[in-house]
Amino acid sequence: MSVDSLIEGRQASPPHHLRRPGLLVSLMVAPGVLVLVLFMILPLLWVVRVSFYETAQGTTMVPAWVLDQYVRFLADIWYLRNVVWLSVFVSIVSTAITVLLAYPIAMYVARATGLRRQILQTLVLAPLLIGLVSLVFGWIVILRGGGLFNSLIIWLGFVDAPIRLLYAMPAVYILLIYVGIPYVVMTLLDNFERIEPTLLEAAANAGAGGWRIFASIILPLTLPGLNAGVLVLFALNFSAFAIPLMVGSANTNLIGLVVYKQAMQLGNLPFAAAISVIMVAISAAILVIYSRLMQRFFLWRLGV
């Protein structure tokens, strides 16, 4: 038993030696699960606990069971309008644009074959593994006051003076969309691959033209992937903090960024904790509503 059975996984001794596979499995998964419980689950629970703390003299934590932090956030119209509503708006708009741009790319990549496909696919997915800081840096070069974009539009005569893109909302949008495209392409590629070419041939044989095939066959069949992409991306965008932190301004206080600022710049941990709980709740609520609507209007047809 012991090490032998750990590796083997199959019954390796007679049945009358009563064996306990449960024990072996426990031994194998114990270290990983323990680490995850200790450094994922406990910290998350701890955040929830801390969100009920009081704060004295600005930021000192005082253990308690009060709703002060929640009330402070939810009763303040400034937070509701300039943080919550802004986050909802920005994440919905950026997700929508991302999906619109990613869809044709995914379709194009899925159509390619052989080496071309391989290269295109690697190119599209590569930004997922290139660090955020590196990607942001390139955009700073392009978007800043004296940067490429402004130089271009001034040279073309569209404007006289540089317009403010960096450290403002446009840069936040551009980067959210930019970072989101590979995610959505990736989820869509799986779906495109699963469409049997014979389905399209059958549609063409039935007399459907290009648009008709797209609207009646391709789009419905890729809807589940699109949907998955939307769900993931919305959740990512809604809680985004790194992008508004790096390229945003005081006017781009997305809710994730507010969590970060409260915790790391203002040191108000209970308040940050409460806001992050609220953030998860809102995000979950929107995703549930979205899923219900999708189910109601589109997906039931596909049996998803």
Partner: peptide
């Protein structure tokens, strides 16, 4: 496979 010992008989 039982002769080989990859599976144990009941």
């Amino acid at each position: 496979r039982m002769i080989a010992g990859f599976i144990m008989p009941d």
